[in-house]
Design a protein around this nucleic acid. Structure first.
Lengths: 225, 225
DNA sequence: GTCTGCATAATTGTAGACAATCACTACTAT
DNA sequence: ATAGTAGTGATTGTCTACAATTATGCAGAC
């Protein structure tokens, strides 16, 4: 080996994902292979793997012979992502009400306490990761790897949509509504739980400003810092 | 360029996909890069792209430093795929009942007539493609690219599950049940339409033999012929 | 006879070099 | 002045060679 490889493709994916979620990378920005390879000190081949994975997650669009660009999800797509989320997560919650172990209820409650801590301390990175992580955790305790992977995909796209369209600085996917859902699940109340989940997702969606798109490309290096 | 490239990565993906759906490639079979490169007369790099795409679609599993293998979806995963399909497709049908254009109704009816033709002539390849294609078409007329991509993923996994677990030689996702759903949509009857779709998916799922797994690796070249 | 260790063969992973394509600029002709 | 065009630089796409890892077969000891 001529030189020690810098980082894994997965690391690059997470780093870019976070930069997009935190709005340091704006939609439309081109992610040039050579640039990323230099920043992370890896070969272009590995950057290509990472970009391919990011495309799969719906965070970047790869145009042949042009390059990879941070996605600009349309308003229609944004609505459809939440459409699918409502459909799937309502069923997940319903299933959990009928069969959830005490250990898993504890896991959910523990997660929410972490969310509260992050919100209290106002650590943006943690807030973003944990608020999405709650929905992921629901999928994890509800079913197989497939359900988890499906939700992972949906959450990833939701993050991008939130980054593009949210108009406040606060993240609206807060721990309070999550807590209510968990308690409804804990006492096995599917009607309330599914209704709460639907309201929660509608709430998140309606707080977005789905009318304008703002995009001004800026410096890549500083955004990934 | 030293030599004319043989085929695109997409072509390899479709070819392998069909081989899996037609049960010529059984779960557990290793798809060696060199072997595929020789069969399709392309470089290993392109084979790698195809295998990566197949992994994304849930048809093969890539184990680092080991290789790519045709997936053996677990019974639990099989149930969860249909769980998500029920959740999503019910909502799609519901949405279509409330807003579908006459042109799209015609497209659906045309598709069903194609299905009937394929069934009458008993062309296995067409039957497989068209029966999945119906559900894809529903997603296409219902929403954005995202909805279509989501259903594409689900159909792809369903094909693998059907290939692994179906115990009859006939494909149970037949045109008759599809036709009933379309007619319910055409007259704007969400109650009937959603119920028919749920029954249809339950029907497909219950006809599978979700108790045993059969897998005996065999020759790769002949399976792709 | 079975298990262990080693050498060999086969397969996957990675990087770098080269080819093809695209964007941009400057120049020319109308 | 403007539209079209050739040239140049930059970026992506692909292939091939090499490194690392894993599987396989064989010899030897218990």
């Amino acid at each position: 080996m001529t030189e020690q490889t810098g980082v894994s493709a997965q690391y690059i994916v997470e780093r870019v994902w976070l930069s997009i979620a935190e709005r340091r990378l704006r939609p439309g920005v081109q992610l040039k292979e050579g640039q990323l390879a230099a920043i992370f000190d890896v070969s272009r081949a590995r950057v290509r793997q990472a970009l391919s994975a990011l495309e799969r997650d719906g965070l970047v669009t790869i145009i042949p012979n042009r390059g990879a660009f941070v996605c600009q999800p349309s308003v229609e797509e944004a609505h459809d992502v939440f459409f699918v989320r409502r459909a799937v997560e309502r069923c997940i919650v319903d299933r959990l009400c009928k069969s959830i172990s005490k250990a898993n209820v504890t896991r959910l409650r523990t997660h929410i306490s972490k969310e509260r801590t992050a919100n209290a301390q106002n650590v943006t990175t943690d807030i973003i990761k944990l608020s999405g992580g709650f929905h992921l955790l629901l999928a994890e305790v509800a079913g197989s790897d497939f359900l988890f992977a499906t939700m992972r995909d949906l959450i990833s796209r939701s993050s991008l949509i939130t980054a593009v369209y949210r108009n406040t600085n606060r993240f609206n996917c807060g721990p309070d509504e999550h807590a209510d859902i968990v308690e409804a699940i804990a006492r096995g109340d599917p009607e309330t739980a599914t209704k709460l989940m639907e309201h929660h997702l509608e709430h998140v969606e309606t707080e977005l400003d789905l009318s304008e798109i703002r995009d001004q490309p800026h410096d890549l290096k500083s955004a990934l810092a």
